[in-house]
Measured scan of single mutants.
Amino acid sequence: DRYEFNINGVHFTIDDAEEELIKLIEELLKRGARAEEIEEVIRRWER
């Protein structure tokens, strides 16, 4: 599934997002994580 979200006006799209990654990102968003922090999480996840 495609997952899309915005952080401070920056648009992100993840194709074939796994449910666990989506939950992790949503938790980070609730905590007010910065875009750079979430980008790093996504990079690590994709390795």
Rank of each mutant, 00 (worst) to 15 (best):
D1M: 10
D1P: 14
D1Q: 12
D1S: 14
D1K: 15
D1Y: 03
D1T: 13
R2K: 13
R2Q: 08
R2S: 09
R2M: 09
R2N: 09
R2L: 08
R2P: 11
Y3H: 03
E4V: 02
E4F: 01
E4K: 01
E4T: 03
E4Y: 02
E4H: 04
E4I: 03
F5Q: 01
F5I: 12
F5S: 02
F5G: 02
F5V: 11
F5R: 02
F5C: 04
F5H: 02
N6L: 12
N6W: 15
N6G: 04
N6I: 15
N6V: 15
N6C: 06
N6S: 10
N6Q: 14
N6P: 02
I7H: 06
I7P: 00
I7W: 04
N8D: 15
N8W: 02
N8V: 02
N8S: 06
G9A: 01
G9E: 07
G9H: 01
G9M: 02
G9S: 02
V10D: 06
V10G: 01
V10T: 08
V10E: 08
V10M: 09
V10S: 05
V10N: 05
V10K: 07
V10F: 06
V10C: 14
H11K: 11
H11V: 13
H11F: 09
H11D: 10
H11Q: 15
H11Y: 13
H11R: 06
H11C: 03
F12R: 01
F12V: 07
F12G: 01
F12I: 08
F12N: 01
F12K: 01
F12D: 00
T13A: 14
T13L: 13
T13N: 05
T13R: 06
T13K: 05
T13E: 10
T13I: 15
T13W: 14
I14P: 01
I14T: 01
I14R: 00
I14W: 03
I14G: 01
I14L: 07
I14E: 01
I14A: 01
D15N: 09
D15T: 08
D15K: 05
D16M: 09
D16Q: 11
D16N: 15
D16F: 13
D16G: 15
D16A: 14
D16V: 13
D16C: 13
D16H: 13
A17F: 05
A17T: 06
A17L: 04
A17M: 03
A17N: 05
A17K: 06
A17H: 04
A17C: 04
E18K: 10
E18I: 03
E18M: 03
E18S: 15
E18Q: 13
E18V: 07
E18C: 06
E18G: 10
E19K: 09
E19V: 12
E19G: 09
E19R: 05
E19L: 09
E19S: 08
E19C: 12
E19A: 08
E19H: 10
E19M: 09
E19W: 10
E20K: 06
E20Y: 06
E20L: 07
E20M: 08
E20S: 09
E20W: 10
E20A: 10
L21P: 00
L21Q: 03
L21N: 00
L21I: 08
L21K: 02
L21W: 03
L21V: 05
L21D: 00
L21E: 02
L21G: 00
I22R: 04
I22D: 00
I22W: 04
I22V: 10
I22N: 01
I22E: 00
I22F: 03
I22A: 03
I22C: 02
K23G: 09
K23Y: 11
K23T: 10
K23F: 13
K23Q: 15
K23L: 14
K23H: 12
K23D: 08
L24Y: 10
L24K: 11
L24F: 10
L24E: 15
L24R: 12
L24M: 14
L24P: 00
I25P: 00
I25S: 00
I25K: 00
I25G: 00
I25Q: 00
E26C: 06
E26W: 08
E26P: 00
E26K: 13
E26T: 06
E26R: 06
E26Q: 12
E26D: 08
E26L: 11
E27T: 14
E27C: 14
E27R: 10
E27D: 13
L28E: 07
L28D: 01
L28T: 06
L28W: 05
L28V: 06
L28I: 08
L29M: 10
L29Q: 04
L29T: 03
L29S: 04
L29I: 15
K30W: 11
K30Q: 13
K30M: 11
K30I: 11
K30E: 11
K30V: 12
K30C: 06
R31I: 12
R31M: 13
R31E: 09
R31S: 12
G32A: 08
G32L: 04
G32E: 11
G32M: 05
G32K: 09
G32Y: 05
A33F: 05
A33R: 04
A33I: 06
A33Q: 04
A33Y: 04
R34D: 14
R34Y: 10
R34S: 14
R34L: 11
R34T: 15
A35Q: 11
A35H: 10
A35F: 12
A35I: 15
A35S: 08
E36F: 08
E36K: 10
E36Y: 08
E36I: 08
E36D: 10
E37I: 07
E37R: 04
E37L: 07
E37H: 07
E37M: 08
E37N: 05
E37V: 07
E37Y: 07
I38H: 00
I38A: 06
I38N: 00
I38C: 03
E39Q: 11
E39Y: 14
E39C: 10
E39K: 12
E39V: 14
E39H: 15
E40G: 07
E40N: 07
E40I: 07
E40A: 09
E40Y: 05
E40W: 05
V41R: 05
V41Y: 06
V41C: 10
V41L: 14
V41Q: 07
I42L: 14
I42A: 02
I42T: 03
I42D: 00
I42E: 01
I42R: 02
R43Y: 07
R43T: 12
R43N: 14
R43E: 08
R43C: 09
R43F: 06
R44A: 14
R44Q: 12
R44G: 15
R44P: 01
R44W: 11
W45M: 05
W45F: 13
W45I: 06
W45V: 07
W45Q: 08
W45G: 07
E46I: 06
E46P: 15
R47F: 09
R47A: 13
R47E: 13
